[in-house]
Nucleic acid binder design. Structure first.
Lengths: 153, 153
DNA sequence: CCTAAATTTCAGAAATTCCTGAAAGTACCG
DNA sequence: CGGTACTTTCAGGAATTTCTGAAATTTAGG
């Protein structure tokens, strides 16, 4: 890793946290590098700083874009793409929360609705159903609040 | 898997979500089984319902306990341990959020404080430092709010 | 079109995580 | 104690995820 000491420690930490955050080590490190960089970086800058393969960087950037966590800058007369994280950290956090909701909550909401929709009340699994319905209602309540809060912003 | 169809679908879904939630498939499935069960279950009940090895269940239960997500019941005259999820789903969610904060946020808070503490302001990495400080301040703000809300409950 | 710079894809190697059966541990009872 | 019913630990095999280099694809000039 080819970074000054403070940055290196920061990047290492984000790598380790990456796994706990459902992204992998490399993706976490790429984000950390972009986050502290004082100018937009291109893929090869990241290769150089992290000492990982070019293709790995490409995949990592793709994943971060799928998470909506990057801004793309192009420099006129330069064919390469440059990337930054949004300047406003609060915006980053909002995006993170949104995306996690999309991946971690919404699918469950959908599945619970479907399951409960198509099973009759007279089911032999009546009790289990009640428990699932309870869960569904709590999730609906909480996502409802969340989308209210989102509107206010 | 030895479960009635609605439950099986529910359990399968929680297995798949498990990975997105930082626990693994089996642990997710174990929790789902306990969640819908209408009585406390012992380890062998879970083995039977999920068709996985006894030792895997043991490890899964241990992990769920580390997450504080189980209640333990003992039946007098029976040597086995029985487990349930808390009845109050809202309590489950609170625990989940607490534990995730503990694993996903608090370590970062600690590391950032340490890093920024020991590097002088005159550092050549002044710019990167500023960005890290910004992040630290936002996390402090947010965890501060969170502990206020916690007190109210 | 053709070339060259840059990016993406992807098969399989490397690393990591998960799962199992066997063995060891624990606790209770007679 | 010795036996029994249950639980935990753990080495190593199975499965999954991550990473790489080589090849394919895209893009912008000339």
């Amino acid at each position: 890793m080819n970074l000054p000491p403070l940055c290196e420690a920061f990047v290492q930490h984000f790598g380790e946290m990456g796994s706990r955050w459902g992204i992998n080590r490399t993706v976490g490190q790429i984000y950390a590098v972009l986050f502290v960089a004082e100018r937009p970086l291109c893929a090869d800058d990241i290769v150089e700083r992290l000492g990982i393969s070019r293709s790995n960087v490409s995949m990592g950037l793709k994943e971060l874009q799928a998470w909506n966590l990057l801004r793309q800058k192009s420099v006129p007369g330069d064919r390469r793409e440059f990337f930054t994280t949004p300047d406003d950290i609060y915006a980053i956090v909002r995006t993170l929360v949104d995306e996690r909701k999309k991946r971690e909550i919404d699918p469950t909401l959908t599945v619970l609705r479907e399951l409960l929709m198509r099973s009759p009340d007279s089911d032999p699994e009546r009790n289990e159903q009640a428990r699932m319905r309870e869960m569904l209602e709590l999730i609906e309540l909480m996502t409802g609040w969340y989308s209210e809060v989102q509107k206010l912003e």
